[in-house]
């Protein structure tokens, strides 16, 4: 399957303000979509520590803090700030005609 075929509609650009985030279920994947400084990011909504929903955490600039045990991740690359070997899967996003699409088959540029 070509990667171009795997873009999935996530939400409308108007659905998220800057600094906001929204958990979505995309093809059975728990995905968190975030908007920061006008850019959209998508990542797995499960913390790699104990699978807590990151959507319930706090977002400060590009860093999301898990609500359960305060593990912090950079939403751009998915890296855990205290040990970069641990990562949250992240996904590429694109905006077309005021809609945000997520590519679940392709991890974003951070890898």
């Amino acid at each position: 399957m070509k990667q171009e075929d795997n873009w999935i509609f996530a939400l409308k650009t108007d659905d998220l303000g800057n600094g906001e985030k929204k958990p979505l279920l995309l093809e059975n994947n728990k995905v968190l979509v975030l908007r920061i400084d006008g850019d959209f990011f998508a990542m797995s909504n499960k913390c790699p520590h104990m699978e807590c929903p990151l959507s319930k955490g706090t977002l400060e600039q590009y860093v999301i803090k898990c609500p359960c045990h305060d593990w912090r991740f950079d939403v751009r690359e998915g890296k855990f700030l205290d040990a970069e070997e641990i990562r949250v899967p992240i996904y590429e996003t694109k905006v077309m005609e005021e809609s945000v699409f997520v590519n679940l088959n392709m991890e974003g540029a951070g890898k």
Partner: peptide
Amino acid sequence: TMFSKVVDPL
């Protein structure tokens, strides 16, 4: 199961 995934990359 959860923790082995966390410690392995470390």
